[in-house]
């Protein structure tokens, strides 16, 4: 789509574009290029000499069982977070979309958690589940369960999954609700007159009509679980115990910041970049297709 009538001139548009382009080049393209370049370099132990090593950083990573385990953890973590927060968001949206008293109040009460920062969500969960301080954590221990997410890897994973999903529910809720409200009521009424019961109406009409929203949200949730949960993991478990809650982004951070292994950290960044590019490409292909419906 192009406009027919436009203004003439070169200087003004150039000036208007300048700030955005300058920031994009300095803080996006240049560092992204550097990440790719560093990924092929390796520094010696004293950081004095740097040599070009080709794909060695990548090969080392893919041969490292710990890296593969972290990749697997990330996958389990991301899929669990997405599945949980999508289904909770959908359920609440379906309920809040009904013609009931106080629907507006319910909506506000379910939308506000959007404002909670991931790291803050983690802190809230610590208050609940801390084995000595937390309300639920103490109750679990009193009930005879050996609850301490700081020592037990499985419990730690459960904690970061639940906290991450919890934080994302309101986002999914907002989008599902908007999707539900755009479904024409006449279609549902027709089905009701034909004798389709509510559950059947949901699975045969509502759910298929929501599929573009669901797919969009799936990609957004996966990206969220990959990257934005850094704050949750850092505040809750710091990747531990024994790396059981370490995700790919967390490891890239540790290798770069703590272990100062710039080559490996950059190679990890490049791998993550490829993941984002793939996810974004899938999303845009899908949206292109949806336009033609």
């Amino acid at each position: 789509m192009e406009r027919k009538t436009v203004f003439r001139g070169m200087t003004l548009p150039a000036l208007l574009l300048l700030p955005q382009l300058a920031i994009t080049i300095v803080f996006f393209f240049w560092p992204a290029g550097q990440a790719v370049w560093f990924a092929f370099l390796r520094q010696d132990a004293f950081g004095i000499r740097t040599s070009f090593v080709g794909f060695e950083n990548f090969a080392d990573l893919l041969a490292d069982p710990l890296y593969l385990e972290t990749a697997w953890n990330t996958l389990v973590f991301s899929v669990s977070v997405s599945a949980l927060s999508l289904s909770a968001g959908l359920l609440l949206a379906v309920l809040a979309d009904k013609q009931i008293r106080g629907a507006g109040a319910y909506r506000t009460l379910l939308i506000w958690p959007y404002a909670i920062a991931p790291a803050v969500a983690a802190v809230l969960w610590i208050f609940l589940f801390h084995p000595q301080v937390g309300l639920i954590g103490r109750a679990l221990n009193a009930a005879g369960l050996d609850w301490d997410y700081r020592l037990n890897g499985g419990q730690a994973m459960l904690m970061v999954i639940l906290a991450s999903a919890w934080k994302q529910v309101s986002y999914n809720f907002i989008f599902f609700l908007a999707g539900l409200q755009s479904i024409p009521k006449s279609v549902l009424e027709a089905a009701a007159i034909d004798g389709a019961r509510p559950v059947r109406r949901f699975w045969t009409i509502v759910f298929p009509l929501l599929s573009p929203t669901t797919f969009f949200l799936l990609v957004v949730n996966l990206v969220y679980a990959f990257f934005d949960t850094f704050g949750i993991i850092d505040a809750l478990t710091k990747g531990g115990p024994a790396k059981s809650t370490e995700t790919l982004i967390y490891r890239a951070y540790i290798d770069g910041r703590v272990n100062l292994d710039l080559g490996s950290s950059s190679a990890q960044s490049v791998i993550l970049m490829l993941v984002v590019i793939a996810l974004t490409a899938i999303q845009f292909r899908f949206i292109e297709r949806r336009v033609h419906y």
């Binding site: 984002v276 590019i277 974004t280």
Partner: peptide, 16 residues
Amino acid sequence: TLMLPVEVRIFPTFKV
């Protein structure tokens, strides 16, 4: 730049 979230290019950006 949609495809380059800050988390992915943290260290090079930090260096800049």
